[in-house]
Design a protein around this nucleic acid. Structure first.
Lengths: 112, 112
DNA sequence: GTGATGTGCAACCAAACGTTGCAGAAAGCG
DNA sequence: CGCTTTCTGCAACGTTTGGTTGCACATCAC
C-alpha cells in the first residue's frame, strides 16, 4: 500500500543545501568543505556537517589528501536515491491518473 | 547549472510522515487528522501540524464538515511536486550516465 | 621558522518535529 | 433537555537538526 523508501537516504537528499552540494560535486567531480562553501550561502562548518550526513548514508566518500579532505559522489548510492525518487514519483503519478480516470468516468455517466 | 526546484514544495514531501500522509490521502480520497493518525506512528497533534504544512504549500485542502475537517489532496499541486522529483532525478541520472560514459571511454583508451 | 590556509571540535541559537495537557465545539444518547 | 463522548485547536515543553561563531591544530609555502 504505502510506498517503501529508505528514509535516511531520502532525508539526506531532502535538504536543499545537501542537494546543491551533490549538484556541485557531480559537476566538478570532487570538492572539499571549503570549495563547496564558496558556492553556497552557508559557512564551511555547515557544509562540513552536511558532508558528514552524506558520508554516513554513503552518498559521498572522503579521501584525505594532505591537509585537505576530498569528497566524491558515490555513483551507485546516488543511483539508488534517484531510483527511489522515480519510484515515489511514479506511484503518485499512477494514483493521480487513476483518480483522473475515475473522475472522467463519473462525468461521462452524468452526461448521459 | 544547478537544478532549480521549489524548496518549500520539496521539503513538504521531504518529511517521511508527510509522505505517508499523502499516500493515505491518495488511497482513501479524504481524511482527517484523527483518521490519519490512526494509521501513523505519531499523535493526532503531530498530524494536525503536518496537515497545516501541507495546506500552506497547497498540497492539500481542508473542508469543514460539522466538527470535522476533511482534507483532500490537491491533484494539480501534487502533480507539480511529482514533476520536480522527476526533474531532479532525470538531471542526476543524466550526469551519472555522462560520468559513466567518460569512465568507459577512458577505460577503452587504456586498453589499446 | 613564520604566516597563511584547511580542518575539526565545542558552544550556542533558531526552527522543526514530536509529545502531553487542557479547553471548547459538535454529535450521540439517556 | 442534560450528560457524555468525540473531534478539534491552542499552549507549553523537550529533542533533533541546520546554522552560526570561536578556537585549537595540522599542513603547505615562503
Amino acid at each position: 500500500m504505502t510506498v517503501v523508501v529508505d528514509d535516511d537516504l531520502w532525508s539526506a537528499i531532502g535538504d536543499p543545501t545537501r542537494r546543491r552540494m551533490l549538484d556541485l560535486l557531480l559537476a566538478d567531480g570532487v570538492g572539499t568543505a571549503t570549495t563547496l562553501s564558496e558556492h553556497l550561502p552557508v559557512t564551511r562548518q555547515a557544509v562540513a556537517k552536511h558532508l558528514g550526513v552524506l558520508d554516513r548514508v554513503g552518498l559521498v566518500h572522503a579521501t584525505p589528501a594532505g591537509r585537505e579532505r576530498h569528497y566524491r559522489v558515490d555513483d551507485a548510492q546516488l543511483a539508488r536515491a534517484v531510483a527511489q525518487l522515480a519510484t515515489v514519483g511514479a506511484t503518485w503519478d499512477a494514483r493521480l491518473r487513476r483518480i483522473k480516470r475515475i473522475a472522467e468516468a463519473i462525468q461521462r455517466s452524468q452526461e448521459q
